[in-house]
Design a protein around this nucleic acid. Sequence first.
DNA 1: TCCATATTTCAACGACTCTTGAGAGATTGA
DNA 2: TCAATCTCTCAAGAGTCGTTGAAATATGGA
Lengths: 125, 125
Amino acid sequence: MKFAEDQALEALGALSQQTRLRMVRTLVVAGPEGLSAGAVGAAVGASSSSASFHLANLDRAGLVQSRRDARSIIYSANYEGLAALIEFLMEDCCQGRPEVCAPASITATACCTPGKTTAKEATDA
Amino acid sequence: MKFAEDQALEALGALSQQTRLRMVRTLVVAGPEGLSAGAVGAAVGASSSSASFHLANLDRAGLVQSRRDARSIIYSANYEGLAALIEFLMEDCCQGRPEVCAPASITATACCTPGKTTAKEATDA
DNA sequence: TCCATATTTCAACGACTCTTGAGAGATTGA
DNA sequence: TCAATCTCTCAAGAGTCGTTGAAATATGGA
């Protein structure tokens, strides 16, 4: 999955709002099982109407996805979309200049390579 | 350099606008020498007033920086800020889940691993 | 079927954003 | 100093965004 400029703009716009950024964080922590719309709203302190509005925005932007489970709509992070956004920023803004990607590379490696240095240790070093 | 939530929100908001995203891309490609405000505006098709507005926004967000050179104001990409934004997204959205960081890690490594020649370095050499 | 629960949709409102064009401020060279 | 160049600032206007509360829709259980 790869973001075109339009999709990246929509994703960036979606994340540039406090409530939505916190929703994404909440859903990433919640994992693939996800959380109901109500639970997400409660976690970030949004009314049901507001939660619905913001979750729809994140859905449109490809950063979360939803499925129905009985009376609830379960939202979960769209890891592909999140990864696509980060990749877009790296390719778009890095443009062969290690100044941008190198620190990101350290963070990514530290975060995702089991047994290797953690992000904290890497920055401390 | 590390972004707090507020700074990340401002940076994301700054990048979520077509003209500004293109300005950043233009300035990253231009390199540390930068480009005059007029040149950036011309590159993205913005009037002088519009260019000034958007460049000020990017400056506030910590994604570009400026210096005066004779009659011109030279803008250049703030690599620290760009890196900080990508790192924020990785730490914030990755949260120990390799689904997000792993693809980013690959991109970052491909782009920036020392010893590998990037497109830019090849043309510069 | 009827009711309770969970979520979405809608309209209205204020706040913010982007664009435009006019004008002001800074710098340079004649 | 004067004029030219480059950029920024300001005000007005159209458009978009986020919040609120009420109403509509969908599901499950009594």
